[in-house]
Design a protein around this nucleic acid. Sequence first.
DNA 1: TTTACTCTGTAACAATTGTTACATTCTATT
DNA 2: AATAGAATGTAACAATTGTTACAGAGTAAA
Lengths: 211, 211
Amino acid sequence: MDIKVLVKANFSFLFEKALLDEMSIVAQLKEVKKNDYLIDIGQEMTFMPLIITGAIKVFRTDDDGDDYILYFIEGGDTCAMTLNCCMKGAKSEIKAIAERDSELLLIPVHKLEDWLHYKSWRAFVFGSYNNRFTEMLEAVDSLAFMNMNDRILKYLKNKVIANKSEFLKITHNTISLELNTSRVVVSRILKKLEIDGDIKLDRNQIKILDF
Amino acid sequence: MDIKVLVKANFSFLFEKALLDEMSIVAQLKEVKKNDYLIDIGQEMTFMPLIITGAIKVFRTDDDGDDYILYFIEGGDTCAMTLNCCMKGAKSEIKAIAERDSELLLIPVHKLEDWLHYKSWRAFVFGSYNNRFTEMLEAVDSLAFMNMNDRILKYLKNKVIANKSEFLKITHNTISLELNTSRVVVSRILKKLEIDGDIKLDRNQIKILDF
DNA sequence: TTTACTCTGTAACAATTGTTACATTCTATT
DNA sequence: AATAGAATGTAACAATTGTTACAGAGTAAA
């Protein structure tokens, strides 16, 4: 599809006409498949991604390569970490992976600043920062105040939203990796959640019941 | 001291002349004592604080009133949560307390947007967002990847920086409240840190040795 | 000095989370 | 169908963190 049409179709409710026009010129479309890497820790950011369809999951990684999921980004939003890094001209502090097949619009990083004179762009950038901030607070809430049982349930519910389906195609092992715990712990707790009637377990699938 | 002199003395290296002038007109000085509340969860934000001297500590609080310290803000910076909330016109999602006696410059919230046409202001606002973002990542790192021993040590080191002294006037109980654990756990780990030669314990005081 | 209170130390035990080990079931491929 | 590998279930145990209880030392005020 033509970029101009794509931009207009997806962002005309967000941005003013002149900005949409500029965007049409410099933006490029990127289509990614589920589990494709968008960016890894230490990589340089050259583009800022605006998500058209799909969902992206964002992780923090430590020196041993252990991951912890921070949040999902969905259609009509962008990655504040990109903003963060672009502004500093720094390397990525996070890694981002496609949660499902997704379409992104890539904007060259220097446009981030160039476009700040557009009121709608400023609102978008600040809005994204704020959304990400709120999600970081949620991540801290989970870690600081909740036990594993509740953290797993919250994780599953967020996953339902990101995937727009209460049937999650996921293994216990994947969950353990994204929450930085062990597979046995996850299996144990999922079984308890099933007994409690919160979820229904099947091979490679979890159905969330109490949504 | 005259606000104009204060603004110029503290921010002339950060902001352009015209902005300094505007700031001198609308800013007001606020002096707070150690442990004074600056803002609490649910309160409305009417001013954006720029820190001149001292340090502020920022907490997340859950429904049961349990706290978890997120980070310290020091001179020449501001609170991105304020930005977050001001932008949304929303209530505070955090609480902020003076870590030590501090001087702040209060800016009416609507100026945040008004001044975005100043390049230096934009740089400052984005810079603050980025600093806070990095600190939120650090908070997640601690919680997701580190054990209590290392988290307490990291906490103490951050405290040394915020207080510009390796002698910390603090009780075990206060530490337990700021890290959302129990006093007994803190005492146990501090004793171990002392045996390991990382710190020196005294009543109401901890000296950090390996800084 | 006496008293009350705060702060710290520590033991004993409980609860949660993590690890190791192994069995079973399901699935894809030969 | 036989085989190999992945996914799940579960027991047994270890390590970490949290709780309860109490003793003793320091401190401030009566």
